[in-house]
Design a protein around this nucleic acid. Sequence first.
DNA 1: GTAAGTGCAAACCTTTTGCAAACAA
DNA 2: TTGTTTGCAAAAGGTTTGCACTTAC
Lengths: 124, 124
Amino acid sequence: MRKNTKQRSMVYEELKSRYDHPTPEELYYAIKPKYPKISIATIYRNLRILAEEGKVIEIKSDKNVLRYDAKTEPHYHFKCTNCSAVLDLDIAYNKELDEELNKKGYKVNYHSIIFYGLCPNCAK
Amino acid sequence: MRKNTKQRSMVYEELKSRYDHPTPEELYYAIKPKYPKISIATIYRNLRILAEEGKVIEIKSDKNVLRYDAKTEPHYHFKCTNCSAVLDLDIAYNKELDEELNKKGYKVNYHSIIFYGLCPNCAK
DNA sequence: GTAAGTGCAAACCTTTTGCAAACAA
DNA sequence: TTGTTTGCAAAAGGTTTGCACTTAC
């Protein structure tokens, strides 16, 4: 049975309050001032739990770091190769792609799309 | 000026000979028997060089590991959540998506799509 | 009271780096 | 010859784990 802890809800609330898809380390440094005794291990453990519960999503946009997103409706991302920002896109999720593969014998859960290039700011 | 080394061409040839999108470590253990004194650092360095040269592609399908692909024409991937295989898909690359974003001020290089679910084998 | 969660430090795993020796051009 | 690459070992990142203590229920 899962318990509600202050630490877990702080991780979740922090994530819901921002749209920059932070890494575990970034979350740690954001929460630390509000709750100085929190440990980075707690951040990791809770991110894993929240992801298992489907409350947050993992974004594999970077080479060696995972990023997290509390917006769980299927959506796509843009990774700027200049400023490193990861942005949400408002392109509609394409269910037909999943169905196309299901017809071929796959059983698709979801798909992720990540665009790489320059964001509008850096493209100027 | 770049030199041609036996090690670099072995990494590239190994990658071209297989379709399972190996990790650096998997490449290391594949090449080691043929060239026992090769170092894992050399694998990493050459993968980076080959990626810079556009001869191989990095696939961010896993949490903590990069996978590599010597098939450089844009294409999409399927990651099986059961057997962990990463498969090439023959869905056409959707250039319109890139153009759609370009119209909105982005400057898209390319996009990657990764599907998650069960591959035809595991779906049975 | 008790099982779940925490903090800390150590361990782990993957990737990068410094450096002297080896090698391609 | 000389600038690049290699192998090795050490270091650096990022993530996980063991354990005693704390907390939610």
